[in-house]
């Protein structure tokens, strides 16, 4: 085989060959040219070895910790923002369109209240909304069930390791001992979103 009969492949073809993505006649053509140019074969081998090394040590994708929890936070913040925007919009819309009638109504009510003497009706008790928070367990063997009872929110964890019986588990009560205000670990974790 004579190198003068084989034309040098263009840069794109050469890159595809190095990446192992050439087939058929194109592959044969570049292989024939490379036989006459051993330095390019050495370069290809080095690049392929480096790629293999990278693939071995770097994962193709990394899952963020607690993705569900993270998403839940984002959705909650979006919900809060949307609710705030909606409230302010409703408020401004209300005042824009009904400011004058509302002022007239308030004046009329004040006038009426000034002429009447009556008992103040008992106001209805505030509505308490019990939210059940999301619970995540990093260990796949541990499961969590959460429910709301009358006076408490309850999380039941199952699959936890038993605490060894020989371990002493009684602590010094803060009511019996000194007040436990010291020992705080201060780690600033201010939210950035």
């Amino acid at each position: 085989m004579n190198s003068t009969n084989i034309t040098q492949p263009d840069e794109t073809t050469l890159t595809l060959w190095i990446d192992g993505e050439l087939e058929g006649e194109a592959l044969q053509g570049v292989e024939a040219w490379a036989l006459e140019n051993p330095e390019i074969i050495a370069e290809r081998d080095a690049i392929q070895a480096m790629n293999a090394n990278i693939k071995e040590h770097v994962p193709s994708s990394i899952e963020p910790p607690y993705p569900d929890f993270f998403n839940q936070h984002i959705l909650r913040h979006i919900g809060d923002e949307a609710a705030t925007a909606e409230r302010s919009q409703q408020k401004s819309g209300f005042w824009r369109w009904f400011a004058t009638p509302a002022a007239a109504c308030v004046m009329a009510v004040c006038f009426y209240m000034g002429t009447q003497v009556g008992e103040v009706a008992d106001s209805a008790p505030p509505l308490t909304v019990t939210q059940v928070p999301p619970v995540y367990t990093p260990d796949g063997a541990v499961s969590a069930n959460i429910f709301s009872s009358e006076n408490a929110t309850v999380i039941v964890l199952e699959g936890l390791d038993d605490i060894p019986d020989d371990l002493e588990m009684v602590g010094i009560s803060s009511e019996r001992g000194t007040r436990s205000s010291s020992g705080a670990v201060l780690v600033n974790t201010e939210m950035t979103f």
Partner: peptide, 16 residues
């Protein structure tokens, strides 16, 4: 072993 974001109210404990 667990992570959560509860809302604590006075008189309504979170029990685990």
């Amino acid at each position: 072993v667990m992570k959560s974001d509860p809302i604590l109210q006075k008189g309504r404990p979170l029990l685990i």
